[in-house]
Simulated assay, not measured.
Amino acid sequence: MSEYQEFLNERDKIDFLLQKGFRIEKVTENLSGAFVVFKHKENKRSATLHIKTANARKYFSNLLIQS
């Protein structure tokens, strides 16, 4: 998979969780990417995504700044 396709895949996963009512709760960055923990507003479910591409990391960073 090309890096651009991987970015689109990661961006779609982030957008899907946000549309379902999840919010970014915690970000842990390391050399292999970032682990982003999402928590649902109402029922307190959580989901974790491993974001590997630099563009997807920039994408969720911008979402954090906007909120």
Rank of each mutant, 00 (worst) to 15 (best):
Leu8Asp: 09
Asn55Tyr: 12
Gln19Trp: 08
His50Leu: 12
Ser67Asn: 14
Asp15Asn: 10
Lys20Glu: 11
Leu31Ser: 13
Tyr59Asp: 03
His50Gly: 02
Val27Glu: 07
Glu3Gly: 06
Asp15Pro: 00
Gln5Gly: 06
Leu17Trp: 08
Lys26Pro: 03
His50Lys: 14
Val36Arg: 00
Phe7Lys: 03
Leu63Cys: 00
Arg23Pro: 02
Phe35Ala: 10
Ser32Gln: 11
Leu17Val: 05
Ile51Trp: 00
Ala56Trp: 01
Ile14Glu: 01
Ile51Val: 09
Ser32Asn: 12
Lys13Val: 08
Ala34His: 01
Gly21Tyr: 04
Asn30His: 12
Phe16Trp: 11
Leu8Ile: 13
Gln5Ile: 11
Ser61Gln: 09
Lys26Arg: 11
Leu63Val: 03
Leu8Tyr: 06
Val27Ser: 04
Phe38His: 01
Ile51Phe: 00
Met1Ile: 07
Met1Gln: 08
Lys13Ala: 15
Leu31Thr: 10
Lys39Met: 13
Ser2Ala: 06
Ile51Tyr: 01
Val37Asn: 11
Ala34Cys: 01
Gly21Met: 04
Arg11Asn: 04
Glu29Ile: 03
His50Glu: 08
His50Thr: 10
Arg57Asp: 02
Asn9Tyr: 15
Phe60His: 01
Val37Thr: 15
Ser2Val: 03
Leu49Glu: 07
Gly33Trp: 07
Asn55Arg: 15
Lys26Gln: 07
Phe16Ile: 09
Glu29Ser: 11
Asp15Lys: 09
Lys52His: 10
Arg57Ser: 02
Tyr4Leu: 15
Leu17Ala: 06
Phe60Val: 04
Ser61Leu: 07
Phe22Cys: 03
Val37Met: 14
Thr53Gln: 05
Arg23Phe: 13
His40Asn: 06
Leu31Asn: 13
Ala56Thr: 01
Met1Trp: 06
Leu64Phe: 04
Leu18Cys: 08
Met1His: 08
Asn55His: 14
Phe38Asp: 00
Glu3Asp: 13
Glu10Ile: 03
Arg11Val: 05
Glu6Pro: 00
Leu8His: 07
Ser32Ala: 09
Val37Tyr: 10
Gly21Glu: 05
Phe7Leu: 04
Leu8Gln: 14
Glu42Met: 07
Leu49Cys: 07
Lys41Phe: 13
Phe35Trp: 13
Phe16Ser: 13
Thr48Cys: 09
Glu10Val: 01
Ile14His: 02
His50Tyr: 08
Lys20Trp: 00
Lys39Gly: 04
Thr28Ser: 10
Arg57Thr: 00
Thr28His: 10
Leu49Pro: 01
Gln5Phe: 10
Asp15Thr: 12
Glu25Trp: 11
Arg45Tyr: 13
Ile24Tyr: 00
Glu6Met: 10
Ser46Gly: 07
Ser32Glu: 13
Arg11Ser: 05
Thr28Lys: 15
Leu17Gln: 05
Phe60Glu: 01
Lys20Asn: 08
Leu63Asp: 02
Glu10Asn: 00
Phe60Trp: 05
Phe35Ile: 14
Gly33Met: 04
His50Val: 11
Ile65Val: 15
Arg45Cys: 10
Glu6Leu: 12
His40Phe: 03
Leu17Asn: 04
Met1Tyr: 08
Tyr4Lys: 14
Ile51Pro: 02
His40Ile: 06
Lys41Thr: 13
Leu49Ser: 06
Gln19Cys: 11
Arg45Pro: 00
Ala47Lys: 14
Gln66Asp: 10
Leu18Gly: 06
Leu17Glu: 06
Arg11Tyr: 03
Phe60Ile: 05
Tyr59Thr: 03
Lys58Glu: 09
Ser67Gly: 12
Phe22Trp: 07
Ser61Gly: 12
